[in-house]
């Protein structure tokens, strides 16, 4: 969906819940867990700033069939406590110096949460190492396939695809040897 700008009303559904799966070795950049359940705001800054988003990885599983033994403890252990962990300084540079300030400076334009925002969110709040292997020029690095509800994201508008509650997004790296 194109970046439609609207102001969220206080009664709008505040968050949406998404299932994220990794394949092709990409899970290694995300703490080794292949399956993640996350909650993101339904309306997000137009500039994809994630600084105001509270990290809400609900649970992470190393295999897709595994059931969480204790969701609350998992959430506590997988949720970045603050954006000051070793990997985040580099990734947060533009957020801190640019987007977040702009946010506070009154750029309050928002859009419905889309895949582009999700990619920024994943980089800022879920990635555990080497962000350059995940993201490049505001999108995923060439060679990473994205499927939204099992459909090639190239058919869904790529980054502009709007997300809804319950969507399942799969990221697969094609870059590992065969």
């Amino acid at each position: 969906m194109a970046a439609s700008t609207h102001t969220p009303s206080t009664s709008a559904p505040a968050t949406i819940s998404l299932k994220i799966e990794f394949g092709g070795g990409l899970e290694l950049l995300f703490g080794g867990a292949r399956s993640h359940q996350v909650r993101i705001p339904a309306f997000v800054p137009l500039n994809n700033s994630t600084a105001s988003a509270s990290p809400a990885v609900i649970a992470s599983f190393s295999s897709t069939t595994e059931t969480p033994t204790s969701p609350t403890t998992l959430a506590a252990s997988t949720t970045p406590t603050s954006p000051t962990t070793p990997i985040t300084p580099a990734t947060l540079v533009d957020t801190i110096s640019g987007s977040r300030l702009k946010d506070h400076d009154g750029d309050k334009r928002t859009k419905a949460a889309d895949v582009e925002y999700l990619i920024h969110y994943m980089r800022d709040w879920m990635l555990t190492e080497r962000p350059e292997l995940f993201m490049e020029a505001g999108t995923v690095r060439p060679g990473i396939l994205v499927l939204i509800n099992d459909t090639d994201w190239e058919l869904e508008g790529e980054g502009e695809c709007a997300l809804k509650d319950g969507d399942e997004i799969v990221f697969i790296s094609t870059l590992h040897g065969g």
Partner: peptide, 21 residues
């Protein structure tokens, strides 16, 4: 194409190993 091979493996749920040397 590599993209199609990976898509094929994904849709067929083929069991493969993916770690960099």
């Amino acid at each position: 194409y590599e993209k199609e091979i990976v898509m094929y493996a994904y849709f067929k749920k083929l069991d493969y190993f993916s770690t960099e040397c």
